[in-house]
Write a protein that binds this DNA or RNA. Structure first.
Length: 481
RNA sequence: GGCCCGGUCGUCUAGUGGACCAGGACGCCGGCCUUUCAAGCCGGAGAUCACGGGUUCGAAUCCCGUCCGGGCUACCA
């Protein structure tokens, strides 16, 4: 049961700098982000990294990046770069990590095997863990039997009380004591687990490699991590890690379990089911890192004011982990789009042109630059520019116009003759024409727009015309007659 | 099933016993502006605060129960 008022009340602001356990002297704030290199950055990981970064900044602490590659084939070395790229794209930096070094290295779990083996040996020596000779098959059978009997599964402790003889393959199993374990979570308040519901868990595999909960606990301790921010799905891993820390005689970090980000189906974002899980997708679609940072911060956190627009620098000033939400947050494309449009409009013309360039490989940089004024307030995503400017590199089919509309186009052609090919002169010429003829803007511009772009929607007609080479514009106007 | 965590407009949220017949933002609807689309401005609809009991002069806020949702449940991370 959570005790929000106590646990959270004291937590706001500087109070967090206090060590988790009384007695020890104030230590440096050290937070860590511990992704496993799976080839992509999960949106939830990105948000966790953001919160880590902001917290470290706010507390003058250190942000550590630790790569959890203690796994099977799933982790490939070159996947590491995806993590760096994704996080750098967001504008995040870390003080320690595999790529930048640091005093607590190495920062890849695969390079820390000796540490885990050493820790496992000391657990064994202290009697906090024991060797388990059970085979995978025997364990599966135990589990299956429990399931069939409708009982929750817990390891039988056969190897603690009556180990089989004559076997040499063993895992190291942690002996869970009786009682309960509790901690004050920075976002959920006090969380309590009855240890009776937790079976003895394996800490080292038969091949002497560590399991997740073990390597995490050992690393958090050895790296002197003061605060652990992670997804809510790790709540149930926390008791095991706390137990290991205690058995090893290490102080425990302070934990904050962030609410899960869910998709439209209310389920946790997963790569299989939700394309929006992949951080790189946003870069590909033309979302600005400024917008992503802002949106991610708002997913599960708020400043307690009515401000919703925040730059990274502003967030560094106001972020407070105690104001993180407890309930899960649903990902919402529309709000992201709104924020992205806001940041796009915020950019200088040159900056927008530079960011747009990669999305418009068909166009010369100069054309992109000239297109910016017409695009800026119309884009939700940078990639949207493609649809708006497509007429520049494709040749739209000539539309079938009514007689009256053809007359308008014919008149436009004549009115544009000899006019300097810039937006303003074009606009002036067209306006002079329609005033002379008594036509509404719509009456004249619509057929012209269709003749030139093949569509009914475009930026203002003078911009649309001016972006096209004069001869090409005339050709498209002439051919509908 | 077991353990754990949640539940305020469609969505993100404000709210920690009275200023809340619940505020903001996105989206939606309408209007203005207007050269179509946007952008901008103005206005509107939208929440029996999951439900039921308490406690209290007074509850979205405290307590109990119920329901619903989610997470975890590996010699994965």
């Amino acid at each position: 049961m959570a005790v929000p008022s106590e646990a959270r009340g004291a937590g706001g602001g500087k109070g967090l700098a206090r060590p988790a356990r009384g007695g020890s002297p104030p230590t440096q704030i050290r937070v860590r982000m511990a992704p496993s290199p799976t080839g992509f950055v999960h949106l939830g990981s990105a948000r966790t990294a953001l919160f880590d970064y902001l917290f470290a900044r706010r507390q003058a602490g250190v942000f550590v990046l630790r790569v959890e590659d203690t796994d099977e084939a799933r982790n490939q070395p070159h996947f590491e770069t995806a993590i760096y790229e994704g996080l750098h794209w967001l504008g995040l930096r870390w003080e320690e990590g595999p790529d930048v070094g640091g005093a607590y290295g190495p920062y890849r779990q695969s390079e820390r095997m000796d540490l885990y083996r050493e820790a496992a040996a000391s657990l064994l020596k202290a009697g906090a863990a024991y060797r388990c000779y059970c085979t995978k098959e025997e364990l599966d059978a135990e589990r299956e039997a429990a399931r069939a009997a409708g009982r929750p599964y817990k390891y039988s402790r056969r190897c603690l009380t009556n180990p089989p003889v004559g076997r040499d393959q063993f895992t190291v199993r942690f002996q869970v004591p009786a009682g309960e374990v509790r901690w004050d979570d920075l976002v959920r308040g006090e969380v309590v687990f009855d240890l009776d519901t937790i079976g003895d868990f394996i800490v080292m595999r038969a091949d002497a490699t560590p399991l997740y909960n073990f390597s995490v606990a050992v690393d958090d301790a050895r790296m002197e991590i003061s605060h652990v921010f992670r997804g809510e799905e790790h709540i149930s891993n926390t008791p095991a890690q706390l137990l290991i820390l205690e058995a090893l005689g290490h102080p425990r970090p302070t934990y904050a379990h962030l609410p899960v980000i869910v998709g439209q189906d209310r389920q946790k974002l997963s790569k299989r089911k939700h394309p929006e899980t992949r951080l790189a997708l946003y870069q590909e679609l033309g979302y600005l890192p400024e917008a992503m940072v802002n949106y991610l911060a708002l997913l599960g956190w708020n400043a307690g004011t009515e401000q919703e627009i925040f730059t990274l620098a502003e967030l560094e000033e106001v972020f407070d982990i105690a104001r993180v939400q407890r309930s899960s947050a649903m990902f919402d494309w529309q709000k992201l789009d709104w924020l992205n449009g806001h940041y796009i409009r915020q950019l200088s013309a040159e900056e927008l042109a530079a960011r747009l360039a990669p999305f418009l490989p068909e166009l010369q940089p100069d054309v992109v630059r000239r297109a910016v004024p017409a695009l800026q307030e119309r884009l939700r995503r940078l990639a949207d520019a493609r649809e708006l400017l497509e007429y520049l590199w494709t040749d739209p089919a000539a539309p079938d116009l009514e007689v009256a509309d053809r007359d308008k186009v014919r008149a436009a052609l004549a009115g544009l003759d000899g006019v300097a090919w810039e937006p303003e002169p074009i606009q002036a010429a067209l306006d002079a024409l329609r005033e002379r003829e008594g036509w509404s803007r719509n009456a004249l511009f619509k057929p012209v727009r269709r003749a030139v772009t093949g569509r009914d929607i475009s930026p203002p007609i003078h911009d649309t015309l001016a972006l096209l080479p004069r001869e090409e514009a005339f050709r498209r106007l002439s051919r509908v007659l």
